[in-house]
Simulated scan of single mutants.
Amino acid sequence: MPERPIRIFGDPVLKTVCEPVGVIDDRVRGLVEDLVDSVTVPGRAGVAANQIGVGLRVFSYNVDGRIGYLINPEIVELSGEPALVDEGCLSVPDLWYPVLRYPHAKARGTDLDGNEVEVEGDGIMAQALQHETDHLDGKLYLDRLDKENRRDAMRVIRESPWF
Rank of each mutant, 00 (worst) to 15 (best):
V23W: 10
D26H: 11
I24Y: 10
R29H: 11
G22F: 08
L31C: 03
V58I: 13
L31W: 02
V58S: 09
V36L: 02
I24W: 11
A45H: 11
G46Q: 11
E33R: 13
G30H: 05
E19C: 01
D37A: 14
V21E: 08
R57F: 04
V36N: 02
R27Y: 15
L56H: 00
A45W: 09
G43N: 07
E19P: 00
V36A: 04
R29S: 08
G22S: 14
V39N: 06
T40W: 00
L31I: 00
V32C: 09
V32S: 08
A48R: 03
A45Y: 12
R44H: 11
R57P: 01
G30A: 13
R57K: 14
G46L: 10
G46I: 05
A45V: 15
V28S: 08
G46F: 12
P20R: 09
V32P: 03
T40N: 08
D25Q: 11
Q51E: 14
G43V: 03
I52S: 12
A49N: 09
V23T: 15
G22D: 15
P42W: 12
E19R: 14
D37W: 06
A48E: 08
E19M: 08
R27V: 02
A48H: 04
T40H: 00
G55W: 02
V36E: 03
D34C: 06
G43W: 11
V28G: 10
D34A: 15
Q51R: 07
L35M: 05
L56P: 00
L35V: 00
R29K: 15
V28W: 10
V32N: 06
